[in-house]
Amino acid sequence: MNPINYLYLSALLFTIGGAGVLFRRNAIIVFMCVELMLNACNLAFVTFARLHGNLDGQIFAFFTMVVAAAEVVVGLAIIVTFFRSRHSASVDDASLMKL
């Protein structure tokens, strides 16, 4: 099996996640799609590490996971705060600053 298949899978998952961010309006699901994109990147990093025979790619994936964890915590807190004030989790309703 050609190693590039892993990269194709990664690109496909990234594209699906990106399309999901554009499609969906529920903030939580948009957030899940962002997570999916991050995971797709991690798969590419791990594949590159094996391609090149060193562990630097895995370190990058590790840092991505840490940043994703921090991002999820703050992002979900923002969603909960927004829901408390607006009683909605739709990204359409966050239009207070729109002209």
Binding site: N42, V46, R50, A68
Partner: peptide, 21 residues
Amino acid sequence: LAVFYLANGAYFLGVVQIVVY
């Protein structure tokens, strides 16, 4: 994806993926 990490020799990341994600 965790299984793929394990298959790609990233044993630590595979376990972390399951535990953290």
